[in-house]
Each structure stands twice: as structure tokens, then as C-alpha cells.
């Protein structure tokens, strides 16, 4: 019972902090919310232009294929990157109040759920433009939920590391760049290639592929693909939380 109350409190605080921070990041900039969309959209345009020049790509609805990959990876990258510094950035708070630290990490991920929604709106517009029904977006809700759990788990681990080791954010920055190229965002995986085997161990790829199947091909992926992925997400969260909770009482001294 007490645990349940704690959980509601953590979620409430995480949500409020996320709202405040989301507002904060849009304050004082003229384009506000558009900045969130600028990065995926500029990448989108560049890749489309390059591919157009190379010519002949066999993927149907390539712009949608690409945009979906971009925004899904973007959510992962942005959340985890900010989470790495989430403890350090709130050092003052942690030192002055006994604060629920899980909520700090949670709030960074929720923040990017907000911006993810704006990206999804753009995606929906593209879908209408490509004669695809945006109603399939409904199926994205459960996927996003488990994707969120997965990202949150990774965020907890990174937040813990980031509180003790300064270099974590640099290392993670390089790692996500490499991962961006390793994940089939702008290309298609071919069976048997090295990168295909590598991606068998990349949960993000599974998330993106499942969503593509629903959005672009209007078919539900087999349960044998969905269930293990959802189990991995929950496990990642549990492990991340465990690590975080083991060390969270030491954070205040490190600030």
C-alpha cells in the first residue's frame, strides 16, 4: 500500500517537473517548440536529398519509413542524454531537500514524451499526405508505453553513472552517434549481413521495425516478436531502477 502511494507520488512529481522543464526550455527562444522538430526535420531533408541523388530506393513510402525511424531514435537519444546529467543538473535541489530522486530521472523522459507528441503530429500529417490512414497511430500507444519503460530503464543506469563519473555524458554522446548509424533508420537491413546480426541485439531496432510494420504495411506484427520485446523493456526498467536505488543515497555527496 505504501509502495503504491510512493509510486503515484513519484509519477506526479515527475510529471510536474517535466512540465516545468519543458516550459523552461521553450522560454526565451523565438521559435520555441519548433526547435524540437528542427533536428529530426533537417536530418530528414538532408537524407531525402542525398537518397534522391543516389536514386532508386526500393522502400515504399521511404519518407515515412525514414521519418519514423528518425523520431523514434530521437526520443531514445534525447531522453537518455539528458538523463545522464539529470542528477548533476539538480545538485542544488538534491543537497537542500530530501527529494524523490527517481522523479528527477522520470521527468527527463516524460519531457521528451511531450516533444515526441509534436513529432508524431508531423508524422500524422505525412501519413495523410501519403494516403495512409493515421488511425493506426492508436496501435502506437502500447508500443510507446513499453518503449518508454525501456528508455527509462537505460536512463536510470546512465543517471547513476553520470552522478559519479563526469565523462559518462561524453562517452554516451559518442555511443549514440555510432548507434544511430548502426540502427536501420535510413537504410534497410538485409539478412545475413554483419549489421543484421549486430542488430539482433539492438532493442531499438525491434521497436522501430514493429512500428513500421503497423504504420506502413498496416499489419500487426506477430506476438512472438512483440512479447519478448515487452519483457525486455520491463526487465531493463527493473534492473535500471535497482542500480539507481542502490546508489541514490550517495548522490548528495557527489554534487
Amino acid at each position: 500500500m505504501k509502495n503504491k502511494k510512493n509510486l503515484t507520488k513519484t509519477i506526479e512529481l515527475g510529471y510536474n517537473l517535466a512540465k516545468a522543464n519543458f516550459k523552461l526550455r521553450n522560454e526565451g527562444s523565438y521559435l520555441g517548440i519548433i526547435w524540437y522538430l528542427l533536428e529530426p526535420l533537417s536530418l530528414f531533408i538532408i537524407i531525402i536529398l542525398i537518397k534522391g541523388n543516389i536514386g532508386g530506393n526500393p522502400i515504399p513510402n521511404y519518407p515515412l519509413y525514414l521519418l519514423l525511424g528518425l523520431i523514434m531514435f530521437n526520443f531514445f537519444k534525447n531522453s537518455t542524454t539528458l538523463a545522464t546529467n539529470s542528477i548533476r543538473n539538480n545538485g542544488n535541489l538534491i543537497k537542500s531537500i530530501k527529494i524523490n530522486k527517481e522523479a528527477l530521472v522520470l521527468s527527463t523522459v516524460i519531457q521528451f514524451v511531450f516533444s515526441h507528441f509534436f513529432e508524431l503530429i508531423i508524422l500524422a500529417i505525412f501519413m495523410v499526405y501519403s494516403d495512409l490512414s493515421p488511425t493506426s497511430l492508436i496501435f502506437y500507444i502500447p508500443i510507446l508505453f513499453f518503449y518508454f519503460l525501456f528508455v527509462l530503464g537505460i536512463s536510470f543506469i546512465l543517471a547513476t553513472l553520470g552522478a559519479f563519473i563526469n565523462d559518462t555524458s561524453n562517452v554516451w554522446g559518442v555511443f549514440t552517434k555510432i548507434l544511430w548509424f548502426a540502427t536501420p533508420i535510413f537504410y534497410v537491413l538485409h539478412k545475413g549481413t554483419k549489421i543484421y546480426i549486430l542488430n539482433l541485439f539492438n532493442p531499438i531496432t525491434y521497436f522501430i521495425e514493429i512500428t513500421r510494420q503497423i504504420f506502413l504495411f498496416n499489419s500487426l506484427p506477430p506476438l512472438s516478436k512483440i512479447v519478448p520485446l515487452f519483457i525486455i523493456s520491463v526487465l531493463t526498467l527493473l534492473i535500471g531502477l535497482k542500480i539507481f536505488q542502490k546508489y541514490e543515497n550517495k548522490f548528495a555527496e557527489e554534487m
Binding site: 516545468a20 523552461l24 522560454e27
Partner: peptide, 19 residues
């Protein structure tokens, strides 16, 4: 203090309250 300098007084009060 955990006040956020770029938020208004009202927003800060709500933030601290939820903390």
C-alpha cells in the same frame, strides 16, 4: 534553494510544492 530562475514566482511555488 531549489528555485528555478527562469520560471515565474507562481510556477516556482507550484514546483516546490510538488517537490
Amino acid at each position: 534553494n531549489g528555485l528555478k530562475s527562469k520560471l515565474t514566482m507562481k510556477e516556482n511555488i507550484f514546483l516546490i510544492g510538488s517537490i
